[in-house]
Design a protein around this nucleic acid. Structure first.
Lengths: 361, 361
DNA sequence: GTGAAAGCGCTAACAA
DNA sequence: TTGTTAGCGCTTTCAC
């Protein structure tokens, strides 16, 4: 099993030139036999293919092809966090799945690039600086002066930002989350709720965990957090309390839920910027002996399927995740074709579940 | 924002030759300034770097470097399923996270390659056939005559198989799951259980969903499923029933749980080949009005943190997931160094939770 | 410490 | 339809 010393030395792989020689054609003709990008006689083609089999040639070396074409066929996807945390969120995963599917059918591969996690770590992954990629995607992009985006621009790599701020020179794919949040809030207002609390996504790379004061409130760096919060105030609501979480995960929602629901003047409704956060709040409420929705209503965002919340179904703003991934894929395609596609915004719909009900008397 | 017709034409990016010319040095010297792989006067180096800034040159084009070096710096990671399903399993995600971390520190990038999902789809992703990669990793590899593995071997790409069968010419990283399963089973035997059912991972690409008969039992193609089942029989147990699931997901565990626990002669214990399956069984038991562990004991495999199962903690065979990812990363490193590392097996430990207890009288 | 030259493996003009 | 030629952008001997 080990080689050093013993075992067959790996002979150098044959190249297209070797195959061409064996088939007694020129390299360019041999190239045509594989790429199909040009006229070639069926017989010649077959001779080349036979020679390839004979020499155990598995097809053109992608490195040569890439340099020649000036394209790697790689799309760098920067996820919004360390993979471990990022992929615990079904939202990221479903968008990524939609994206990979679309890119796959275009013959493009996805290079996974971890996003900034700790504020202590270097803010930009080395792959961003030097990996080969034709286009980049920032999955949760959108802080001001994002160092990752800056690095990509410096390299001249066209970039698609998901859920980011629209800005000169980058293509953005987003959803109408502000309006969606407004609808969810209006739904609660219609049910008579007056004390409404909000559980938010992180404000910035610091990812704090706790109630937000006015000072902190002015520091929202992430576009998505800002917009979804604006959706609530658009409905004319001043939140009774705002709780910032360090990531969209159930446990953080639970922590937030305990904090918000343990106090004296409990909110009667909690609006959450993600479904995972919302389900954490529901779990916290249950553990505190509160009935959902009789004692407290909870609304989320994303429209995930959360079977373990059964028998409850979360009231949630549903966003089309796979479609979002596909939209990003098509934006990538456009960029590759040399076009800078316009901003693309997908719609959302409010799904009424069992976790929201009339405000308690 | 659009370009075709209007807008600034993207001028061609400067190359190392341009920078060298601007700095009035040779290309080879300029190369040294960036790579640091050779002697160069500090002043010269600085002149090159300045020229680079001047020309807005962001560093050597990876495509050129890759062709020259004969290496892409890319590791292709084939996940065991469509991403959407694969990443709903924290096991894959945590291993991937450990892997990406290790590879990242080696300067290697991860190319995501979807595994075979439907048996209807082509069994090998096109990226496997033609993407540039120095090494490949099969995350849930190990069917006999795996077409993906075959394709990679044909291309001469060294491959690490996670949890696969040991075989000539591939490097394998695994865990001692057979022994772990035996311990879990012995734990149940010690608690007096006699009617023990098993919920398994998929047998093969067909991914059936249902009770297994003797015929089907002979068709286990996935090494991991086979080994974990063997662990149970090693303990001297003949399962009362075996239920095959199409994927390691909570809902499939739930379905299995309903099937196994609704019958007349209920098993008193259910051993599951993964924690997600086990937690589905727990949920099913709860919904059927059965108490865990008083009426039925449930054991899992993986050692995941499942907060939403609270207050229960699953009894489970704990495997070191991040460590497994790191071990795969090191195997990749060895392969890249031209060595074929030996089989590496990581240990597991039984964690006693609250979901197993004495067999009912 | 620096420069000249060769070539990684391939594809795309262009010529025949 | 096939062959010739010319690089893509870089790193790495090797000579100076």
């Amino acid at each position: 099993m080990r080689r050093p010393g013993g075992g067959p030395l790996p002979r150098p792989r044959p190249t297209l030139a070797d195959v061409a020689a064996a088939a007694k054609v020129s390299v360019s003709t041999a190239s045509l036999a594989f790429s199909g990008a040009g006229p070639i006689a069926a017989a010649t083609r077959q001779r080349v293919l036979d020679a390839a089999v004979e020499l155990d040639y598995a097809g053109p070396n992608p490195l040569g092809r890439q340099l020649r074409r000036g394209r790697s066929g790689i799309v760098g996807v920067v996820v919004g966090d360390a993979l471990k945390r990022s992929f615990r969120d079904p939202v990221s995963v479903q968008v990524l799945d939609g994206l990979v599917g679309t890119l796959g059918s275009l013959g493009l591969g996805v290079l996974l690039i971890p996003g900034p996690s700790d504020p202590t770590e270097p803010p930009v992954d080395p792959l961003v600086e030097s990996a080969a990629m034709d286009v980049a995607v920032l999955m949760w992009g959108g802080t001001t002066d994002d160092p990752t985006l800056t690095a990509l621009q410096r390299r001249g790599i066209p970039t698609v930002v998901v859920e980011g701020r629209q800005q000169e020179g980058v293509t953005t794919v987003g959803i109408d989350d502000r309006q969606g949040m407004t609808e969810a809030t209006q739904h609660l207002l219609g049910l008579g709720h007056e004390r409404i609390a909000v559980v938010t996504l992180p404000f910035d790379r610091a990812r704090r965990d706790g109630l937000v004061d006015d000072d902190r409130l002015s520091q929202i760096d992430w576009e998505i957090t800002r917009r979804r919060l604006a959706g609530v105030t658009d409905a004319g609501v001043t939140p009774q309390a705002i709780y910032e979480t360090p990531a969209s995960l159930v446990e953080h929602g639970k922590t937030a839920g305990f904090a918000l629901l343990s106090g004296d003047v409990r909110p009667t409704a909690v609006v959450c910027q993600s479904d995972l956060l919302a389900s954490g709040v529901v779990l916290a409420a249950r553990e505190l002996g509160l009935r959902v929705p009789e004692d407290v209503s909870v609304a989320g965002f994303d429209g995930l399927d959360l079977p373990w919340l059964a028998p409850d179904v979360l009231t949630s703003v549903v966003q089309p995740l796979a479609e979002k991934g596909a939209a990003v894929g098509h934006a990538v395609e456009d960029l590759l074709a040399g076009e800078a596609p316009p901003y693309r915004e997908l719609g959302v719909t409010l799904r009424l579940g069992t976790t929201t009900g009339p405000a308690p008397a």
